[in-house]
Write a protein that binds this DNA or RNA. Structure first.
Lengths: 211, 211
DNA sequence: GAAGATCTGGAGCGCATGTTTCAGAATCAA
DNA sequence: TTGATTCTGAAACATGCGCTCCAGATCTTC
């Protein structure tokens, strides 16, 4: 509303004295570490550097804030990975790189992924939030599927490769790595899962399926 | 204390007027559906059929209750599956049966597994609870590893099969199935992940590794 | 400057939370 | 029966929750 009016030239009233992006980062960090139910509005105010009135004025109530944080997180992390997948010249190498990165990040940061954490959380019992989470996971799955289909087109995967199932396996690997990283099993442990999923891709290579 | 004294013949005081097992089942159901932080003591009182004084007297505070519920859940579900694995004559078939059952149960009941849900939940930030969760997941991994090693001994898996990595992949499949089932993707979707993991086992069969 | 709009800081709303307290009921040993 | 012990039901306790309100500051338009 503020932005809308101001952009239209109807601008009026006091400016916001905080960086909305930085505030969102604080919200993401809070929800990522403590989840929805264990993050109090006081926690969020502190991590976002806002007083409650500013917070409510700018971002709405707790649920709306969560939905915005999830959306901002999607832009900041999963969708960047998706863009890398889509832009890569070698889709299989990009997938390998993708999983390897997930392993490294997960081993280093036990907070996990806001999207995956939310899927396992009771906050997903809420209809809107579950829709957002399903949507986010669906984006990832679709991106992996696109990459696999490109690999088929390029000949690095056999035409009869079960790309739809493989995309699900890859998404499953990401999910399990991110969940299990919360118990700090160590990087080699997590890499076992990533390598297992990648081995399945290789089992669908033209050479493997020809024999 | 009550039980202890009574068993020793020093018994005194009023009997408990509720079924402790039934009460634990209520606690498990509550924590499984709503998780730790979103389950209020009032919710637990209702689902367990207890007043707060009885609840605190019998099970301690919320965290202690959660730890007991997790332990009871382990006995009621994962450890039964583990026993089936250990007792089976054909370990690979038992693993297949195990994963298939997880798929069916997960598709039918979107509440998921208390152990897996807890791993992804911020309640696992607590040291004791994280230890319990890690222990539970470790039991599962160890059981899968035992089954795989028996498969090697029996000759249904090649001696050079990477059983440790395969056990992790299988545990990862279980985790991802249980997490993703919370977004209700449907049974065929979940089965793709189970079948993928099983395909990896077959890739370590003596025949596959001989070629 | 005045009028109108928005944002900030702080106080505080009503309510739910986890937990405690306690009188009374139930049980046993003596 | 009496005394000791434990359990039950109901009523709270203090605290923290999500959220609102409002006076005053800051901004644009006139």
């Amino acid at each position: 509303m503020r932005v809308f009016d101001r952009e239209k030239g109807f601008a009026m009233g006091r400016y916001r004295s905080f960086d909305e992006t930085r505030a969102m980062d604080g919200a993401i960090a809070c929800f990522r570490e403590r989840g929805y139910h264990a993050s109090s509005m006081r926690d969020l105010e502190r991590e976002m550097g806002l007083k409650s009135s500013s917070l409510y004025n700018a971002f709405g109530d707790k649920k709306t804030l969560f939905l915005r944080a999830l959306e901002a997180y999607m832009d900041a992390s999963p969708r960047r990975r998706i863009a890398l997948l889509d832009r890569s010249a070698d889709p299989l190498a990009a997938i390998e790189c993708f999983l390897g990165s997930i392993v490294l990040v997960s081993a280093a940061d036990p907070c996990g992924c806001l999207l995956v954490n939310s899927a396992a959380s009771p906050v997903a019992l809420d209809k809107e939030i579950r829709a957002a989470v399903s949507g986010g996971l669906g984006e990832l799955e679709a991106a992996l599927l696109r990459a696999l289909e490109r690999a088929v087109t390029q000949g690095s995967l056999a035409p009869e490769a079960p790309v739809r199932d493989l995309a699900r396996v890859l998404l499953g690997a990401v999910v399990s790595i991110r969940v299990l990283s919360r118990t700090s099993p160590g990087e080699p442990w997590l890499r076992s899962i990533a390598d297992g999923a990648l081995a399945q891709l290789r089992a669908s290579s033209p050479a493997a399926l020809a024999s």
